[in-house]
Simulated assay, not measured.
Amino acid sequence: MKKNVFVFSRLDSEYVLRLEDNFNVTQLDPQGDIDAQYAAALPEAHGLLGVGRPMGRAQLAQAGRLEVISTISVGYDNYDLDYLNERGILLTNTPDVLTETTADLGFALLISAARRIAELDAWVKAGNWQATLGPAQFGCDVHGKTLGILGLGNIGAAVARRGRFGFGMDVLYHGNSRKPALEQELGARFCGFDELLGEADFVCVVVPLSERTHKLIGRRELALMKPSAILVNVARGPVIDEAALVEALQNRQIQAAGLDVYEQEPLRESPLFALSNVVTLPHAGSATYETRRAMVELALDNLEQALLGGTPRYRVNPRVRGT
């Protein structure tokens, strides 16, 4: 007998057809009654597939048959891991396939903030380019500067490689542990948190969101950075105290910021929008055709393996029963 899968995010028909080879599939209709669809699907679902919806005790109380949630993302802060462990529900995710793409975007933000790409693009389109540029339009160099990485995991290391080998940057990093192999490869130097903030010309935040990293960068930390420093965040929005960052940018306490993530998403209104020294992107780190396709395919692989008796490649909580 086929198991039941509830797809709670938009999925192309080719992937739905693939799932239907092995499972009874129900797909969320975003135009319908969302709550009613969840109420109908969850009690029978053995597997869930999607991204972006918080799931914990309150949301999954009626999901008595649930075995696995396959999230189409790397991050899993939307999921109550303690509750999933308590229930013996496996959570899988999609790391690695978006490493290089997210690093591309992180470095694009860094360059855009340094060379004022978005600001000058808008300035030219507004008809302001009437003569040779003067100091009011100057940016700052990227090559040869010091790049500080907070969280030298896969994405952080990929950003560091771009800086080191593409732009001749010195690399500093801080994290939970030292990475000797990466130190040798990148000539990177492990240093204290405050030391990195004080020395780096560019601070790139690539840490997972947790209780420990919530508002990791606030007023105190921004005050430690150079007035010429640029802050880049491709991690999670709540890692930075957004009100403190707005204040620092308004007062030119730091030079600029490049942001892809925010405390509240989607970001429809924000004092950030009034600032010329910040680049704001719509959580686009993995938003390429190739990467999103690879993420969906990996999420499907994880789901199929979990429900058909195999071992999923990426398990967030591998010790739950049945795995």
Rank of each mutant, 00 (worst) to 15 (best):
Gln37Ile: 13
Arg189Asn: 06
Met169Ala: 12
Tyr79Gln: 03
Gln264Lys: 15
Leu298His: 08
Ala284Val: 09
Glu86Met: 07
Ala113Gly: 04
Glu86Lys: 14
Tyr262Glu: 09
Leu105Asn: 01
Asp121Leu: 07
Ile89Val: 14
Leu259Gln: 08
Leu172Thr: 00
Thr288Lys: 11
Arg313Pro: 07
Val74His: 00
Gln137Trp: 06
Leu186Thr: 08
Gln59His: 01
Glu20Ile: 07
Thr94Asn: 03
Arg252Val: 11
Pro312Met: 11
Tyr289Phe: 11
Gly175Asp: 05
Ala126Ser: 08
Ala103Glu: 02
Ser9Gln: 09
Ile240Arg: 07
Ala181Met: 13
Ala113Lys: 01
Leu216Thr: 05
Val246Tyr: 05
Ala188Met: 03
Ala122Asn: 10
Glu242Thr: 12
Pro208Leu: 05
Ala256Leu: 07
Ile149Lys: 10
Tyr76Val: 06
Pro271Met: 00
Pro238Ile: 08
Leu42Arg: 11
Pro282His: 09
Arg321Met: 11
Asp201Phe: 00
Gly52Lys: 05
Gly258Pro: 01
Asn78Tyr: 07
Ala118Gln: 06
Asn154Cys: 06
Pro271Lys: 05
Ala188Ile: 03
Cys140Thr: 12
Pro266Trp: 04
Tyr173Ile: 05
Ser286Cys: 04
Leu152Asn: 11
Tyr76Trp: 04
Glu100Gln: 13
Asp104Cys: 13
Val261Asp: 02
Ile230Arg: 01
Arg236Ile: 10
Gln264Val: 15
Thr132Ala: 15
Asn85Phe: 03
Ala248Cys: 10
Arg236Tyr: 01
His46Met: 13
Glu100Arg: 14
Pro30Lys: 12
Cys191Gly: 08
Leu186Cys: 08
Asp301Met: 01
Asp80Val: 05
Ser70Gly: 14
Pro227Gly: 08
Gly258Arg: 00
